[in-house]
Nucleic acid binder design. Sequence first.
DNA 1: AACATCCCCAACCGCCTGTTT
DNA 2: CAAACAGGCGGTTGGGGATGT
Length: 311
Amino acid sequence: MDALWMSSRGGDLPPSSAAAVSEDEAAALSELRRGPWTAEEDALLSSYVAAHGEGRWNELALHAGLRRTGKSCRLRWLNYLRPGVRRGGFTPREQLLILDLHSRWGNRWSKIAAHLPGRTDNEVKNYWRTRVQKHAKQLGCHVGSGRFHDVVRNLWMPRLVERIQADESAAAAAAVSQCYYDSSASQLASTHQQPAACQDADVAPIVSCGARAPSPDATSCVTGSSSSSWEASPAPAMAGWSSATGEQWRNGCSTSATSGGGDMFDESWSELLARANHDDADSAALTTGFGLGETGDNWWSLDDIWQQPLY
DNA sequence: AACATCCCCAACCGCCTGTTT
DNA sequence: CAAACAGGCGGTTGGGGATGT
């Protein structure tokens, strides 16, 4: 298999600087490896970066004894080996943030990923392409179309918010429950200082509801920015969502408002939309409930909804 | 069980931009 | 100022696992 990936062509070769590249180095470059990284290569790269730091990737590749291009090393490090890289499915909060940020910036994957701690641009891009675009296609529309924006804003994002709220309510309830059954007074106190709803340390930096005692307010923690926690309740906007979309999406997501990690496309919302599209009244409600329409400029910025600056 | 198809994602590619010489 | 280089970005590909027939 390795042989299949061995490459001697120069398509992605580091720049050849005759003065800087010794014969050994040139020989190494002549048998550059491509394809999946081995554990040995990962270990080599990790240890070299740990000892010398990031940057100067071409030089790093040579000196670390990696028969890889500098680009390949950089990519492997940033997307896989770098400490703090998160793997696995996107949480509802992350999905919500991706949708919102993409509405602002388009395919600026690295910029979007910068607001998702531990996530890489590659992951965000893959998520968008494999989930979002796939379902846009199923709907027979383009991801950039007004129709798709309406769907996202009026169906998908409310469902994500509902799921987030449900998750946090459950977590808060669990925390309270734990308090009752826990005989330790100190643990009781500490639990109240750090609501379980906000204990997702991985997400907290960008999506935080702050530290406060579990209460009905806990369900109002939805999302936030990297620079400020979300303390304000989005309740008014949420009420708007609920009333505007009515029972349509609410029914459609009734089984999904529980924790589980899947994305909103897993379930029946597309069927729901299809139904709505065959009902003019429902369709109108979907697109006009928020003063939205095909001519909207800022389609579904969360700012509009929660009246709270994100960044 | 075997085969076909679908789907996800790691990795590559080529282009662009900023920096250095 | 121009050329060379390094790094970064978004788009694309293809291997392999999951799922369906």
